[in-house]
């Protein structure tokens, strides 16, 4: 049964590596998109929905 421990360790190792990679990718992608958004907002471009949300909140 000892030889099977390797399969368990490999499974959990690959799962941890994949989940960590996914989280890092989501964070990096989010940072990139935020930079793009900031550049657009600095250029004076706003979301159409921003005015609707602000208008209804008043």
């Amino acid at each position: 049964m000892m030889s099977h421990t390797g399969y368990v360790i490999a499974s959990y190792g690959i799962a941890a590596f994949t989940v960590a990679g996914l989280i890092l990718w989501v964070l990096a992608d989010g940072r990139g998109r935020r930079r793009e958004l900031k550049a657009l907002e600095d250029a004076g471009i706003r979301r159409r929905s921003a005015s609707t949300a602000a208008g209804e909140a008043q």
Binding site: V19, L22, I23, V26, L27, D29, G30, R33, R34, E36, L37, L40, I45, R47, R48, S49
Partner: peptide, 19 residues
């Protein structure tokens, strides 16, 4: 639960310019 933050975060950032 991992699926929720992993999708809602890109949704929030990607929808920023589109909406």
């Amino acid at each position: 639960m991992l699926f929720l933050p992993c999708t809602s975060r890109p949704c929030a950032t990607k929808s920023g310019a589109g909406g």
